[in-house]
Amino acid sequence: MAYDVRTLLEMRQDELDDLFRNSPAGDIPDGEATGTAIISPGTVFTESIAKMINLFAWQGKVFDARRGVLKNRVSIFGLEAILAKVYKGESWLDQKECVVLDYSATSLVAHWIRDEIRCIAPGVYLGKVYWDKHRLIDFCLAFR
């Protein structure tokens, strides 16, 4: 099956979790990715919430694989801010390898946040967001 943003927005939480569990970590990405927040998966609200967040709050991430860092594109202006370290590590979901986006040592505003991503299709990553060790939401990154 080909996975894209539209497909992910239509999936239920258990389907997103299964897809994440059954996908490889993939390479640490490099370059700019368009981000889509996946909140209330499998409901009629998912797509509308994603559009609002994308317009006003979070547009994606810009990775520098060589340096092992990323910056988020945030605000209506798409400013690059909120730095994270990027490395491969063990997922908190299933203890298998994933790409970790770690804000603990790089961000005052997001130091309690950890993202995990896995490659679900060429240039497409599915992510999980944790606040301390509590799961918050899912997201998708689509690279050009």
Results as ranks from 00 to 15, higher is better:
residue 1 M to K: 12
residue 3 Y to G: 05
residue 4 D to K: 10
residue 5 V to S: 04
residue 5 V to T: 14
residue 6 R to P: 03
residue 8 L to Y: 11
residue 9 L to M: 13
residue 9 L to T: 08
residue 10 E to W: 08
residue 11 M to Y: 14
residue 11 M to H: 10
residue 11 M to C: 04
residue 11 M to E: 02
residue 17 D to A: 10
residue 17 D to E: 15
residue 18 D to Q: 13
residue 18 D to I: 04
residue 21 R to L: 12
residue 25 A to K: 14
residue 25 A to D: 03
residue 26 G to K: 09
residue 27 D to W: 11
residue 28 I to Y: 09
residue 30 D to A: 03
residue 31 G to C: 07
residue 32 E to P: 00
residue 34 T to S: 00
residue 35 G to M: 13
residue 36 T to V: 14
residue 41 P to D: 02
residue 41 P to Y: 07
residue 42 G to D: 04
residue 45 F to Y: 12
residue 47 E to M: 02
residue 49 I to L: 14
residue 50 A to V: 12
residue 53 I to Y: 15
residue 53 I to S: 12
residue 54 N to R: 15
residue 54 N to G: 14
residue 54 N to P: 00
residue 56 F to D: 04
residue 57 A to P: 12
residue 62 V to A: 10
residue 63 F to T: 02
residue 63 F to K: 05
residue 65 A to N: 03
residue 66 R to T: 07
residue 67 R to Q: 13
residue 69 V to W: 02
residue 72 N to K: 10
residue 72 N to T: 12
residue 74 V to S: 02
residue 78 G to T: 05
residue 79 L to S: 07
residue 80 E to P: 02
residue 81 A to C: 08
residue 81 A to H: 09
residue 84 A to Q: 01
residue 85 K to P: 04
residue 91 S to I: 09
residue 91 S to K: 07
residue 92 W to D: 05
residue 95 Q to R: 15
residue 95 Q to P: 05
residue 99 V to S: 00
residue 100 V to D: 04
residue 103 Y to G: 03
residue 104 S to E: 13
residue 109 V to S: 15
residue 113 I to N: 02
residue 117 I to L: 11
residue 119 C to T: 02
residue 120 I to P: 05
residue 120 I to C: 00
residue 120 I to T: 05
residue 124 V to I: 15
residue 126 L to T: 10
residue 127 G to C: 04
residue 132 D to H: 12
residue 133 K to D: 01
residue 134 H to F: 10
residue 134 H to N: 01
residue 134 H to S: 02
residue 139 F to K: 13
residue 140 C to K: 08
residue 140 C to I: 09
